[in-house]
């Protein structure tokens, strides 16, 4: 594990009058894989969009190693594997890869290595519209991996995948444990998440709560969301 400092401080954000975050705080100090868990519509994707600057908070700051994330800093240090619906259906995987590689000056060898790792070479020249959900998801992850960003955000990478794709992505996440990258994975698949990390960020009410869950994320999830709790923004520290 490598020392890093990713910090969310007093983050507030609302969609119109619906608050998603109220003065939420989170501090992550080392590289590794972190899970992000919360009920549907609780704001997991919104958090990723706030980190990457796709959305702008009403209040608060998000910093990486003490520097507030600006668009330039996000481009250089953060990669985001979004929902695969952002891919262009008429373009091939290679078209997308070529574009990202050009923007980030990625070497051909790196492209080949990542493509091999995620096993996309067989369908990289097919149009996105003809790919399965799992293939699109793997392509999306390849695109996020190419720049070798320090902070990698993965939005529901295990959703709706075939067993092969799940295994490939699980192995990838396992590999991240020993790299200098910080990876935050949002997922509903708590079983799979438990297999790769015990460090979970829970989206609780309008705050974030970081915990190391020795008994698994599922048990803690039941505690947090299935029982009535007093409403209070939580602070999390790793």
């Amino acid at each position: 594990m490598v020392k890093m400092n990713f910090e969310i401080k007093d983050l507030s954000f609302a969609y119109r009058r619906h608050p998603v975050f109220i003065e939420a705080n989170l501090t992550l100090m080392t590289s590794g894989v972190y899970g992000l868990v919360g009920p549907n519509g609780s704001g997991k994707s919104t958090l990723f969009n706030l980190i990457t600057g796709l959305l702008h908070p009403t209040q608060g700051a998000i910093t990486l190693d003490g520097t507030v994330l600006t668009p330039n800093l996000v481009f250089a240090n953060v990669a985001y594997a979004q929902d695969s619906s952002v891919l262009y259906p008429y373009l091939t995987g290679r078209d997308h890869i070529r574009f990202v590689a050009l923007q980030h000056h990625v070497a051909a060898a790196r492209i080949a290595a990542v493509s091999e790792q995620l096993e996309i070479t067989q369908f990289v020249d097919q149009r996105v519209s003809s790919l399965s959900q799992g293939q699109k998801q793997r392509l999306m992850i390849v695109l996020a991996l190419l720049p070798e960003a320090r902070l990698l955000l993965m939005d529901e990478p295990l959703n709706g995948l075939d067993p092969d794709s799940v295994m490939i992505i699980r192995n990838l996440l396992e590999d991240f444990k020993s790299t200098a990258q910080m990876v935050i994975v949002s997922s509903h698949n708590l079983d799979e998440l438990d297999k790769v990390t015990d460090q979970i960020i829970f989206k609780v009410d309008q705050g974030l709560q970081f915990e190391t869950v020795a008994d698994g994320a599922e048990a803690r999830y039941a505690e947090l969301y299935h029982h009535a709790r007093p409403v209070k923004a939580g602070d999390g520290h790793a």
Binding site: N49, T52, L54, P71, F75, A79, Q82, S85, Q103
Partner: peptide, 15 residues
């Protein structure tokens, strides 16, 4: 169809 491709482009420094 409710897919905003611009978000992906923006992440690639294409504002």
């Amino acid at each position: 169809s409710q897919n905003d491709h611009t978000t992906w482009l923006r992440l690639q420094h294409y504002g």
